[in-house]
Simulated scan of single mutants.
Amino acid sequence: MAKLTTIGFDADDTLWQNEQFFRLTEQRFQALLADHAAPEALVTRLLEAEKRNLAHYGFGIKGFTLSMIETAVEITQGRVPASIIGEILSAGREMLSHPVETLPHARETLERLADDYRIVLITKGDLFDQERKLAQSGLGDFFDAVEIVSDKNEATYRRIFSRHGDGAEHSMMVGNSLKSDVVPAVRAGSWGVFIPHDLTWVLEHMEAPADEPRFRELPHLGELPALLERLG
């Protein structure tokens, strides 16, 4: 087996909480438009808007905020009160300034691995927001490199692991998204380690590549050092 020299970590919902703030804001959005649509219908329309807008706004809070505004306009047939638009914008700003909450085992795992591997943060989303969260997390010193990308696919991992490591075959990607973190990394030739999170966004769901020899699933980050020891 090719010796592992480099480990990539996802950020949102792998090292720190993220999706829970989207869910709370979504609930606030439902309350604002309760007189115009049932909660289930509103969530469906919002998700449709987010899907449409990914190609234009990318991943992150700003695109989510714009999708909420677009949905509010559609649901009310253009009659949404300016006060509701103001509330949506305020909710987006609050998300962008919310304190970072690191997940259990994140710091201790990075501490244990930092001396033996090149550690790379590989995250997608808004540049300013991801930089803010990394700075506030207190985890920045553990990383040999940070890559904030617009999307994660096979080419992304091949490029990053060649730039910051010894190639994909000598690398591992760890994250909570099968679609973004695990499956494309495995297809690129890396190891892919899935750490489930209770609130992973529905658009990041995908069937686990259970038959792939380089796929592993762990209950939490604290199990990662033991896995690496078993892999040798």
Rank of each mutant, 00 (worst) to 15 (best):
M1I: 08
A2F: 10
K3V: 14
L4H: 01
L4C: 00
I7M: 00
F9C: 06
A11Q: 06
D12I: 05
T14V: 06
W16F: 07
Q17E: 14
Q20A: 06
L24G: 01
T25I: 00
E26W: 02
E26F: 00
E26Y: 02
F29C: 02
Q30K: 08
A31P: 04
A31G: 15
L33T: 10
A34I: 12
A38Q: 11
A41R: 15
L42Y: 14
L42E: 13
R45V: 14
K51P: 00
K51G: 03
K51M: 13
L54E: 11
K62T: 09
F64G: 03
M68Y: 03
V73Q: 12
E74H: 13
R79A: 15
P81W: 11
I84P: 11
I85Y: 11
G86S: 14
G86I: 08
L89G: 01
S90M: 05
S90A: 15
S90D: 11
A91I: 02
R93Q: 10
E94W: 04
E94H: 07
H98D: 00
E101A: 13
E101S: 10
T102W: 04
L103R: 04
P104R: 02
E108P: 02
E108Q: 09
L110M: 09
R112K: 15
A114I: 05
D115P: 09
Y117E: 06
R118D: 13
R118C: 11
V120H: 10
L121Y: 00
L121G: 02
L121S: 03
I122C: 12
K124N: 13
L127D: 14
F128E: 15
F128Y: 08
L134G: 09
A135V: 11
G138R: 03
L139W: 07
D141M: 09
D141G: 12
F143C: 03
A145H: 10
A145P: 10
V146D: 08
V146I: 15
E147P: 01
V149H: 07
K152D: 00
K152E: 00
A155G: 04
T156S: 05
R159D: 00
F161W: 01
S162R: 13
A168I: 01
A168M: 01
M172A: 06
M173P: 12
M173K: 06
S177W: 00
S177G: 01
S180C: 01
D181I: 10
D181L: 10
A185H: 00
V186A: 07
G189A: 02
W191G: 03
W191C: 04
G192Q: 14
G192F: 13
I195S: 08
I195F: 12
L199V: 01
T200D: 06
E204C: 11
M206Q: 04
E207I: 07
A210L: 14
D211F: 04
R214G: 09
L218Y: 05
P219M: 02
P219Q: 07
H220F: 14
P225E: 04
L228F: 13
E229F: 10
R230V: 09
L231T: 04
